[in-house]
Design a protein around this nucleic acid. Sequence first.
DNA 1: TAAATTATTGACCCTTCGGTCAGTAATTTT
DNA 2: AAAATTACTGACCGAAGGGTCAATAATTTA
Lengths: 219, 219
Amino acid sequence: MTSPSRCAKKTTHRRRKEARPGELTAAALDLFVEKGYAATRLDDVAARAGVSKGTLYLYFDGKEALFKAVVREGILPALAEGESLVAGFAGNSEELLRAVVIGIWRLIGSQRLGGIPKLIFAEAGNFPEIASFYHEEVIQRGTTLLSSVIERGIARGEFRAVDVHVTVHLVIAPVLMRMIWRHSIDCCAIAGVTDEGYFAEYFEIMLRGLRKSPSGKAN
Amino acid sequence: MTSPSRCAKKTTHRRRKEARPGELTAAALDLFVEKGYAATRLDDVAARAGVSKGTLYLYFDGKEALFKAVVREGILPALAEGESLVAGFAGNSEELLRAVVIGIWRLIGSQRLGGIPKLIFAEAGNFPEIASFYHEEVIQRGTTLLSSVIERGIARGEFRAVDVHVTVHLVIAPVLMRMIWRHSIDCCAIAGVTDEGYFAEYFEIMLRGLRKSPSGKAN
DNA sequence: TAAATTATTGACCCTTCGGTCAGTAATTTT
DNA sequence: AAAATTACTGACCGAAGGGTCAATAATTTA
């Protein structure tokens, strides 16, 4: 029982040096999000990418390098997009906050990438190298991004003079938690609620909480 | 190299049937919170409790039963306390919401137990039995508890007519995220912020978002 | 077509860990 | 003190999985 190959149609294996890395990171993203970091088997990643484990090691130094490649390829572009959005935005800060949060949700939260934060929070303690990598390349940048939005709102007299550092965390928490729910016990809890319904109430509460004038209807 | 025993002072082991279960669940809580569910070794749990792995199996059927015991012993009493608080509360709903959230933080979030939600979210997918156990015994009860507070506020004309289901998740998200940060990459992010500072801004934003009258200063 | 090159394989090594159980030692009973 | 009871131990088993590497097959070069 040697189960010779994986490809039913082509008994022989093909040599496709160019395509391998992308196929491997795609497969890895699927499995990392589904199983977590430690529980993902490199055998399975390789199999899903249509190669053997040995091939995986030809393109990546190991599990850690593979994971970093997944994050760099998937999350950093989304952050860059958010940064350029803020840099060139002309409207009021309420609209900007909406645009940034919705953008994060559209590019990360609603995609398979939305499972990465959960994985990081969960396994940071057991994999310090990955934790510091993610902290430096994603969390710091993301925090700075949101801080700039809040600070802009305060500077323009649109938001109250909140504690920016704390508020960034309060603003992003419901977004992160929706990603986390979606990738764990999502089953019944928020299952019946659409993204639209969730974020509508989220913005209503959050912007009422941030607005300087308590008279509402600033939009 | 047999490393005969663990206890340096008493070469002999003691028989303490009554004390073992509590010592084992205490050790297990420490390690589950520190390492996560899958990564916690029963050998280590036993060692921290001062017994051998064999002894652990005398008191618990295995890892899963041990974990359930930890949750039942640690989290369910806190939920019960919240329920009785709501049942007998006389003040306005804003105060009640504050009391319930602060209570959850005091009894769970700020304790080692605050590491449990992270573990559950992270490993629910890999351990369905634990996920459904936690969902039925903790999440449903907790959601119902918070729903009753929001509904009370709406019924008394203190809160806007928000979507209760969604709002429960929005209200608890920053609390859960603070637990999660504290037990993962807490390092720099919220490290400099006290619980008081965090929750002060949290209540300010959340209650402005919930209040019916937009004139502020309802407290 | 033959030789050289290189992408790919998968069996293998080694460690880890949940779970088992025959044996040992502490305690109680007689 | 001897016998009976039972709390406790730790060596062991089997499965799992990260990482290695000699062998093999596809492709390129001569």
